[in-house]
Amino acid sequence: MSDHSMQLLILSALSLVPLVIVLALGLAPRGQEKMRNWRVGNPLHTAVLPVVRPAFLEPLVSQLRGMHGSEMNGYAVGLRHLPVEAAAPVLRYLQHCADPAVELYAQTVLQGGKDVLQSLCGRLQESSATCSQRGMCALLEVGLRLAHPALLPSSEKASWISRMEANAEQALARFSQPSVRLLAAMARVFMAARRLEHAAALIQRLPANSPVKQELSQAFAFASRQLPVLDS
């Protein structure tokens, strides 16, 4: 083989290198890409958990009235682990504490909890026209959490629920085969909006004898006040 043809061969081989790299990059990451969204194992197995302290048997209301200042810091900070709608009343109470640090903690934890829900709801709302069934479920569930009386003033409730109702209607129109979770979430929204006939129709579509159907049927009966009155 002459030098010229050897050089030609080497150059051709070198020119193929980028092509090979592109092909390799194009093929290989597909599996990796998927796995990037996965979490393997549960970190709680190896995590160092906080020391369990003996429970306070004194009622919380007594502690709240009896403890002062920085003693309440632990409460304010600890409440961030609870669902914000459950912790909101106590956090609101702590906002009137004389200690500015506790007041600030309580305010920050409450605001932070609300912000997380609101930003998640906003993000999901933006993509509500194109999102998956799970996205729509998450939107309706977060919307219902935000409609909790501890988070939403009663004056704003009607408009908020009607917004969720519009989302539920959109979901109903978009997904012809909704998942059980989506059906349940839509039924809950319609019950909250007092559109009971829509809720009843959705509950009927749930699998027969399933726990979700039993649970929602009871909630529906309660919402429409059709519970039998038991004489004790």
């Binding site: 969204n37 996965w38 979490r39 393997v40 999102c131 799970r134 998450a138």
Partner: peptide, 15 residues
């Protein structure tokens, strides 16, 4: 081991 989706993918993904 248990394998789960991460939260963002679970929220809106269609896995």
């Amino acid at each position: 081991e248990l394998v789960t989706l991460d939260v963002a993918a679970a929220e809106s993904g269609d896995a």
